[in-house]
């Protein structure tokens, strides 16, 4: 808990929020509020000072997160939160930059930026709120919509194979890859704190209910029913070990009405882009000095 908390008598998280903007615009039962709260608590747990916290969000429902958060935030253009975050990190490597955005923003229009930031191992924390569709525009099918599920643009069932996000991230070179649902609030918070402390490109996927966009055409009922579905998975876990430490991300595909594999998929160490870039400078200086000396010799001759 930070010092600001004692100033307010209201909700313990209110010090980190623009409380006058609440209640927020997200639908009843939407998971973005849960993820935002977990993120705030994770920042406190990882003991990152307020000056170093920066959050970048894209376009979509989750883009509103930066409006409610009372810290340095950027609301970037569609699909481009990672380039914005990369620029911030390169300009000031001391900052702790995280990206909170949706699956449509990060993997449809911004997919290229994601894989290349992971390849370069930029020191960013990417949190993807996966609700299986484009929620804000009315529930169209997206890059993560499971096969056979219905959206307003796929009324007879989706035929496209969705992305397996942990596999995509780990094969692109992310150093920390995890997946949780919005029911695993504590594991999500601890995992986020771990990722915030870690150097390198970290990726956390959060499976979130979308009762208005995805739940309605698939007859998922009330938002509580969707959360109960996660709970059923949760109850099964002790027998089936669906929480897997170091599970194979290739087998983490999401299929309609089947159990979702959650857990930490990858946790490795690799030199980051900023580390390698800082090592470049002395080499360049040496080369420059050599060039200057050669020029001086030529002038003397």
């Amino acid at each position: 808990m930070s010092e600001l908390d004692s100033v307010f008598d209201a909700h313990p998280v209110d010090a980190h929020l623009r409380a006058d903007m609440l209640p927020h615009i997200w639908c009843p039962g939407c998971g973005i509020g849960i993820v935002l709260k977990a993120y705030i608590k994770a920042l406190d747990k990882a003991e990152i000072p307020l000056e170093k916290r920066i959050m970048v969000s894209g376009i979509g429902c989750s883009g509103r997160a930066c409006i409610y958060l009372n810290q340095d935030c950027y609301h970037s253009t569609h699909g481009r939160p990672i380039p914005f975050a990369t620029g911030l990190k390169l300009a000031n490597p001391d900052l702790n930059v995280s990206v909170i955005s949706g699956d449509g923003d990060l993997f449809a229009i911004g997919g290229n930026h994601f894989i290349h930031a992971a390849r370069r191992n930029m020191d960013l924390n990417v949190i993807c709120i996966n609700n299986f569709n484009y929620g804000m525009t009315g529930g169209q099918s997206g890059p993560t919509t499971p096969v056979d599920s219905k959206t307003i643009t796929t009324p007879y069932g989706n035929i496209e194979r969705p992305f397996n996000l942990p596999h995509l991230a780990s094969s692109s070179g992310a150093t920390y890859v995890a997946r949780w649902t919005t029911l695993d609030v504590r594991r999500l918070r601890d995992s986020m704190a771990e990722a915030l402390k870690k150097k390198g490109f970290t990726f956390i996927e959060v499976i979130s209910p979308c009762p208005t966009g995805y739940g309605r055409p698939n007859r998922r009922g009330e938002p509580i029913d969707e959360m109960k579905q996660y709970q059923e998975i949760w109850d099964l876990r002790e027998d089936n070990w669906i929480i897997q430490e170091g599970a194979d991300p290739r087998e983490a595909d999401i299929r309609l009405n089947e159990s979702i594999v959650v857990g930490v998929f990858a946790d490795t160490d690799r030199p980051t882009f900023t580390d390698l870039y800082s090592q470049l400078d002395p080499v360049r200086k040496k080369k420059l000095k050599e060039i200057v000396r050669e020029d001086e010799r030529r002038v003397r001759e």
């Binding site: 909700h11 313990p12 998280v13 209110d14 929020l17 609440l22 209640p23 927020h24 997200w26 039962g29 939407c30 998971g31 973005i32 509020g33 849960i34 709260k37 977990a38 608590k41 919005t182 029911l183 609030v185 504590r186 918070r189």
Partner: peptide
């Protein structure tokens, strides 16, 4: 504090 963590509206503590 599970209700506090799981409330998406920052409405219970």
């Amino acid at each position: 504090r599970h209700c506090e963590d799981i409330c998406p509206e920052f409405g219970i503590y």
